[in-house]
Simulated assay, not measured.
Amino acid sequence: MRNAEATRKRILEAAMKEFSSFGIAGARVDRIAKNAGCNKNLIYIYFENKETLFTTVLQKHLTRVYEEIDFTPEDLPGYAARVFDFAMTHPDLMRLMAWYSLEQRVGTLTERATVQEKKIKEIMEAQNAGLVGTTFTPGFLMTTIMALATAWTATNPFGLSHDLDAEKMPIETREAIVKAIRLITKSEEDIAN
């Protein structure tokens, strides 16, 4: 049993490298098997097909993200900073997400949708409690946080191309993101004062 678990782990690691580099369409099961040091047929035995393997890899890493990045609706600027830190230190996962968004060939990731719905609901509750401003909808806030926090990754066509110094100044970029999120999550009363 341990040998099977070790092989499965090697397959998932090799698949992460392959899919983050080439996406679903460009990835080759032969290369994954070679890099995992296993027979190609084992991949099909464990995962049925390439799309299922891709979904498994993506879900595994998204689950890790959900566990490692605490969502704090009462402190959305802090959450944005943690997303930025994670995104900048995990370019392979950001590339994998980009491929997922581009190809949309695999089924909907229900856990991802559930987590996003929960976060939006928590933002709404924070707004109702007066902890977050109501100028913008919870969905808009969540989208803005994710867009800003990941804008300077290599997979985003805008951040680095418009802000050439950002890569050399990650601390300043992080602080600017926090400040921007702090401003858009203030209530209109707080902005007026």
Score class of each variant (00 low, 15 high):
21 S>I: 03
22 F>G: 11
174 R>T: 05
158 F>P: 01
28 R>D: 14
7 T>E: 04
59 Q>H: 06
143 T>S: 09
87 A>F: 14
121 K>A: 10
158 F>Q: 04
80 A>N: 05
1 M>H: 00
155 T>F: 02
113 A>V: 08
188 E>G: 13
55 T>N: 00
105 R>C: 03
108 T>H: 00
122 E>A: 06
4 A>D: 10
64 R>Y: 10
129 A>M: 06
89 T>P: 05
131 L>W: 00
41 N>C: 11
8 R>T: 10
102 L>K: 02
111 E>P: 03
41 N>G: 12
149 A>Y: 06
70 D>R: 12
190 D>C: 10
110 T>D: 10
31 R>A: 07
96 L>D: 02
175 E>D: 15
185 T>W: 02
112 R>G: 04
151 A>D: 15
101 S>Y: 03
51 E>C: 05
4 A>K: 05
171 I>Y: 15
59 Q>A: 02
2 R>G: 03
163 D>C: 14
41 N>D: 10
76 L>K: 11
36 A>V: 12
122 E>N: 06
92 D>T: 11
191 I>M: 12
179 K>I: 14
152 W>H: 09
187 S>A: 12
119 K>R: 11
27 A>R: 02
165 D>M: 14
4 A>C: 07
22 F>V: 12
120 I>E: 11
158 F>D: 08
93 L>H: 08
85 D>R: 08
140 F>L: 11
92 D>N: 07
6 A>S: 13
83 V>F: 15
140 F>M: 13
52 T>W: 13
17 K>F: 14
111 E>R: 02
175 E>M: 15
54 F>D: 00
45 I>K: 04
184 I>M: 13
170 P>G: 13
2 R>T: 03
149 A>I: 15
87 A>Q: 08
164 L>C: 09
95 R>K: 10
51 E>N: 04
49 N>S: 09
91 P>C: 10
81 A>E: 12
49 N>L: 09
38 C>R: 05
150 T>Y: 08
47 F>W: 10
122 E>S: 11
124 M>G: 11
142 M>E: 05
74 E>C: 07
10 R>I: 01
163 D>R: 10
179 K>E: 15
24 I>P: 00
133 G>Q: 01
180 A>Y: 15
189 E>Y: 13
89 T>M: 13
65 V>C: 12
151 A>V: 11
126 A>E: 02
